[in-house]
Design a protein around this nucleic acid. Structure first.
Lengths: 146, 146
DNA sequence: ATAATCTCTATCATAATAGTAGAGTATAAG
DNA sequence: CTTATACTCTACTATTATGATAGAGATTAT
C-alpha cells in the first residue's frame, strides 16, 4: 500500500466533513483552505468520493459537501481502497490477480499476504468517528484544526 | 511500502544466490533465466546489490555472482529498503522527513506509523536462511525451483 | 588469443501522479 | 427573474518513476 496525495487529501477531507457532520454543508473552498489542498484538485476528488457514495453535495448558495453516512460507518480502509487501490505491498496478493503462474510455490507470497493482512487489520479497524474523537483531543492540546 | 519489479527481482535473485551459497558463482544468465528477469535489467540490479554490499562477483570464465555474507545475515527488510526505499505507507512517517508542519497534530500520522511498524516487524524478522528452508519445502512439494 | 562473463553509461517508452483550465449547471436570495 | 455562489464535467499538461534496452569496455580461465 502506498498513500498518494489523492488518498491523503481524501482522508483529510472526509475527516473535516466528519467534524462538521451535524452542521450545514462545507464548501470546497473551505475544505481546500483548511487542509491546504489545491482547490481544482479537490473538486475532482470530491466528485469521486460522491460517486463512491461517501459524500453528498448541494449546489448553489448555502451549497457544499456533507458526509453521506455517519462517521461511525466509514472506515479508513474503505477510503484508502477507493482512492488508492488495494491494500497490499505487491500485485501478486491482490484480489483478482490471476497471472502469477506459481502462486503456491513462491517463497515470498505468504509474506506479502501477511503484510497486507496486518495493514488491513489496522485501517479497517478505525472509523472516522474514532478520528473525530482523537482529533478533538489533539485540538484541545495543540490548537490545531482541520 | 510498495514493492517494485526492481525490488521483487532483487529479492528473488538474493534467494537464488542463497540457495547456491556454498556452490560456485551463479551467472547473471542463469539468475535471469530461472526468475524470468530481463537480463540487462538484472545486470543493473546486481551492480546495485554489489554496491550495497549484499553480493560479490567474479569476472571472466567461471565468473558470476555470490552472496557477500551468509543467508542468515541478510534480512528481507534490508533488501527492500535498499531497493525500494523506506517501509512506510506515506512520506510523513519516513525517517528524515522534516516538512510536515504539524506532525504531532495530525490524526493520521500515528496510524501510518503503526502500519510502518507492523510491516517492519514482519520483513525484519525473516532472513534468507529462513526462506531457503521454506523454499526447500515448497520445492519438494511442487517441484519449483528458483 | 579468445570466449565467457561482469561493468559502466546512456538512452528510451510508458504510465502514474499531481495538478491546471475553463465552460457549464443548479439554487438561494433579493 | 437576475445574479452571485457553489458544485459539475471534461480536457489538458508537466514531472517523475518505472521498467526496461543498447552497446562498448574490462577482466579472467583456458
Amino acid at each position: 500500500m502506498r498513500i498518494t496525495y489523492r488518498g491523503d487529501y481524501a482522508l483529510k477531507t472526509i475527516l473535516d466533513l466528519a467534524l462538521h457532520y451535524h452542521n450545514s454543508p462545507v464548501t470546497i473552498h473551505n475544505l481546500a483552505l483548511r487542509a491546504d489542498i489545491p482547490i481544482k484538485f479537490l473538486e475532482q476528488i470530491l466528485l469521486d468520493l460522491k460517486k463512491g457514495g461517501f459524500v453528498e453535495s448541494r449546489r448553489g448558495k448555502i451549497g457544499g459537501y456533507m458526509l453521506a453516512k455517519p462517521p461511525s460507518k466509514i472506515k479508513l480502509g474503505q477510503i484508502i481502497r477507493f482512492m488508492d487501490g488495494e491494500i497490499s505491498p505487491i500485485a501478486c496478493v491482490d484480489n483478482n490477480y490471476k497471472r502469477c503462474s506459481h502462486i503456491s510455490k513462491c517463497a515470498f507470497r505468504s509474506i506479502w499476504q501477511k503484510v497486507a493482512d496486518s495493514t488491513s487489520r489496522i485501517v479497517d479497524n478505525i472509523t472516522f468517528e474514532d478520528l473525530v474523537k482523537k482529533n478533538k483531543n489533539l485540538t484541545s492540546k495543540f490548537t490545531y484544526q482541520i
